[in-house]
Design a protein around this nucleic acid. Structure first.
Lengths: 252, 252
DNA sequence: AAGAATTTGTACGTATGTATT
DNA sequence: GAATACATACGTACAAATTCT
């Protein structure tokens, strides 16, 4: 059996796109690292053998993706930035704004990710890290008397610590990004809820239960409590139909 | 106590950035919907009262984010594209490629995500979806006799179906992206392994066990088997030190 | 079916404000 | 403070591509 040659339709690749690819490839390959500088626009013009406009279009794309930053008049050229979550977050927010991504999906994702991180953390945690966890609980308690933003910050520190203990930066980043997007969508409602203080106290209580389970090395229970906590905290903000799906995530 | 006025440092907002914002706002507000056309570049020049280069920089950014597509010579102007997760996916790939992620972290992430998706799927699956799952098993079996690429494709279909059943597109996207990055790193080694066929057969067997557990509604067991399967499949490619961490992910 | 009209893709030149030395 | 090199933005020009007549 001989193969019949099959061809794909070809769409032209723009000049600016080629430039973006080259820069991103060098970044992925480690030949270009954060802090380094790209050649100046004029230098890039001659290296890529294209016009200034083309170079600038490529730089704008890289810039809007958080890869580099150009500053007018800087003789050192565009700076290569360290990876940041802003671009990732922007895309998630974009999808959430146009309803391509529902709040329930975001919360479901967090229930799973945070639960998993806690389960792993309860295996891997050292005694020192357990102390750290308990310190964050104290910080959360203190923050309640300040305001919701302070509490939210303390809560963030808790989840960052969990993710760190689980020794997986990918989980860590995903958690933080999604957490930020969810909070951006509904933090106002929570902050101005009449029972805001009661909500914070209950959340603190749940966090303490999680730490207890981690101390006992009972990852299974810890994860379950964490998912339940998150459900209780957020379920009021999602449509009834989606609540069932989220409930399915709690059980095991 | 009177408040001392405090000011934040101001960073200039580029002209192209303003244009991007206006377009994305109209999109989020529904005043601009997929399929519609933007005015031509020259029209935009007069509407935004900026130069053509500036308009083009904005269009390139929107284009690279999957928001619009310009085609040379199209008198209708740039097309507004349907919402998609390609931009989100691109950022995730960047994260996974650039941010010095180890293979073990990627695999650990997959063990958690895929396990969670399977656990949820075993609760939410309909009888029809169960049939679909069994059909993918048959497809995987057939693919083994072709080559590793075919098997990999059938495996992808399996995991896509799982993610779809779990009704969370975010999990789906993350799974696919990370799976793609992992395969990009080591698919060569697997394809050319001397026991390649044996590996595929074993993987198929594990997948069948997962489907069995899903049929019984035993999400817990299904997830465990899935994580074990992935560990067995990939563990040989990570350093010994990291293998312990990954093993911690299997148990519960 | 072929050419005209319009639009995008790319290039180049210039003026102006800015950051560094 | 001055000199220099730079990015920002504007405008023009022409080639390539697409649509419509």
């Amino acid at each position: 059996m001989t193969k019949t040659p099959r061809f794909e339709p070809v769409q032209p690749i723009r000049a600016y796109q080629r430039i973006v690819e080259q820069v991103e490839d060098q970044l992925a390959r480690g030949e270009l690292t954060p802090g380094q500088r790209l050649p100046s626009e004029r230098e890039l013009v001659s290296q890529f053998a294209v016009s200034r406009s083309t170079v600038r279009e490529a730089l704008r794309v890289l810039e809007s993706n958080g890869v580099v930053r150009s500053r007018a008049g800087d003789p050192n050229g565009p700076e290569v930035l360290p990876f940041s979550q802003v671009a990732l977050r922007r895309q998630l927010v974009r999808l959430a704004r146009v309803d391509e991504l529902t709040l329930s999906e975001l919360i479901g994702f967090r229930m799973i990710m945070d639960g998993a991180a806690i389960q792993v953390a309860s295996r891997l945690r050292t005694p020192e890290q357990l102390d750290e966890l308990e310190a964050t609980l104290v910080a959360m308690r203190d923050a309640i008397d300040v305001d919701f933003d302070a509490f939210s910050l303390a809560d963030l520190a808790f989840h960052e610590l969990i993710a760190r203990i689980s020794r997986n930066t990918l989980i860590q980043t995903c958690n933080e990004v999604v957490r930020g997007v969810v909070l951006g969508l509904i933090s106002d409602k929570i902050a101005h809820a009449p029972n805001s203080r009661a909500l914070m106290l209950e959340s603190l209580h749940h966090h303490a239960e999680v730490v207890d389970a981690i101390r006992d090395g009972n990852g299974h229970a810890a994860a379950r409590i964490a998912r339940q906590n998150m459900y209780d905290y957020y379920a009021g903000y999602v449509p009834d139909a989606d609540q069932e799906t989220l409930q399915a995530l709690i059980e095991d």
